[in-house]
């Protein structure tokens, strides 16, 4: 791909005008009877060539500027230490309450606000990541596909503290998240971070689909569980005698299911914003693998450079013009002497 482009390529037809300075001179000519009276001088010859070249440069740069010289947008392959991360974020309404399961008052933070704050930091700390963001509640919502554009990622993360919806459909959310890894992300650096404050029963069929997906796209799985006060934890076992069903202990069973996928998996149970912060920092440390990510450099106008070059060359030519003298200048005329 050609890296240089022009807004008005037709203006380039003026480019042959750059040959003009080699045919004409900006200085007024002084006639001499013969070149023999002018001593040979290397400096003069060099400056003469330089002036012609400056004139050609000025005209060429002006033409390039007029034709709208720009560098086309380019994708640059970068390497860094990071990961291809899919953030799967719970958007159920329970996220809008605090860790104490109250509506936030005063300085209190809701879980979603804390998650937003900490995830924003997380994304900002890791410039080499490619990040995708998806949310789920009643239905999964892809927010940002796998991208290098951290502005888009931050915006997507910033949007997760909007008031949420009712249900928590973890299974379909996970399916979506698995599908968001694209071919360009290398397999070794894929990570899926599930942020939720609860779990739900995963349908059998969805479970099968997830198992398939996990075999197809092996990822490292992190579950950041924002445990609300009084709710059941990941590791809560039912007391003896009580039935151990996913309906009653969805968190425990989701954990069991995720473990059963055969993927590198870690669960973090966070009871406060500080726990969330510690968990995220741990994920941050774990996910430092060499990644190749593409950075798109937008189109960049270069015409200002062309105009700058033209202005520079023209200024030099102006200086030369101001230094111009002629051999037969009248103010230098003195009474002519006649040798005897």
């Amino acid at each position: 791909m050609n890296a240089i482009g022009f807004d008005h390529p037709l203006a380039l037809l003026l480019l042959p005008l750059a040959a003009l300075p080699f045919l004409a001179s900006p200085l007024r000519l002084s006639a001499v009877p013969s070149s023999a009276v002018v001593p040979e001088d290397a400096l003069s010859a060099a400056i003469g060539v330089a002036l012609s070249c400056l004139g050609a440069l000025a005209i060429a740069a002006l033409v390039l500027g007029l034709s709208g010289l720009h560098r086309r947008d380019q994708a640059v392959e970068r390497r860094g230490a990071g990961a291809n991360v899919v953030l799967l974020i719970d958007r159920s309404s329970s996220m809008d309450s605090t860790f104490a399961n109250r509506s936030p008052e005063g300085k209190e933070e809701s879980k979603s606000v804390a998650a937003r704050r900490l995830l924003t930091d997380f994304a900002a700390r890791r410039p080499a990541d490619r990040v995708a963001v998806a949310a789920f509640s009643t239905a999964p919502m892809p927010l940002v596909p796998m991208t290098d554009h951290h502005d888009a990622v931050s915006a997507a993360i910033a949007a997760i503290d909007r008031p949420g919806l009712a249900h928590t459909d973890v299974g379909r959310g996970l399916t979506l998240a698995f599908s968001m890894f694209d071919d360009t992300s290398s397999e070794t650096s894929r990570a899926l971070v599930l942020v939720s404050d609860g779990a739900a029963v995963i349908d059998r069929r969805v479970q099968d689909a997830l198992r398939d997906a996990a075999r197809r796209d092996p990822v490292r799985l992190y579950w950041l569980f924002l445990r609300t006060q009084g709710s059941k934890g990941i590791y809560d076992r039912p007391p003896p005698g009580e039935p151990d069903t996913p309906q009653i202990y969805p968190e425990r069973h989701l954990d069991v299911f995720l473990k059963s996928l055969g993927l590198p998996y870690r669960a973090f149970e966070a009871k406060s914003a500080a726990d969330v912060s510690a968990a995220i920092r741990e994920i941050d440390q774990l996910e430092q693998r060499p990644t190749a990510y593409k950075e798109t450099i937008p189109q960049q106008n270069l015409d200002w450079i062309a105009y700058l070059v033209a202005a520079f060359a023209t200024a030099l030519l102006l200086g030369a013009k101001l230094m111009e003298r002629r051999l037969d200048e009248p103010e230098l005329a003195r009474p002519a002497r006649t040798a005897s």
């Binding site: 006639a31 002018v38 001088d41 400056i47 002036l51 111009e324 002629r326």
Partner: peptide, 16 residues
């Protein structure tokens, strides 16, 4: 800067 022109050959030369 003087630019000279040879009256016979028309050759131009710049002289500093």
């Amino acid at each position: 800067l003087i630019e000279t022109r040879d009256l016979e050959t028309g050759r131009r030369r710049l002289v500093v």
